[in-house]
Amino acid sequence: MQLSTKTEEQLRIVSVKEDRIDAAVALEFKDAMRVETENGPDTVVLDLSQVQFIDSSGLGAIVAAMKSLGAERKMALAGLTPTVERVFQLTRMDTVFSVFSTLDGALAELQH
């Protein structure tokens, strides 16, 4: 599971460098996310712009990653591709996260 992380003005930006977050890699994703977000800024932006597909296991892993941040920290999602966005909408999980269509949009909004 390839993640790339940078910290910018009180934001931790984690970009997923994979086509898919599915059952085959959901656990690996969860573990990698824990490592990338363990310490650091209160707001984590998960950049999903390279991810073309998630299944329910991938969705569960993203929810688990958000929960592991605790109540004091927040996770925003950016760059959802059409099928990924649909999974969030169908399960109503789009109401739980702040969702931004692009990473730039997320940064512009969250850095204020």
Partner: peptide, 21 residues
């Protein structure tokens, strides 16, 4: 059935979406 997401953070479901989808 759709899993409820109108819950506290700690109670958010991490599974049970498959058959709903």
């Amino acid at each position: 059935q759709r899993v409820s997401v109108d819950v506290e953070l700690g109670d958010l479901p991490e599974g049970g979406f498959g058959w709903f989808l």
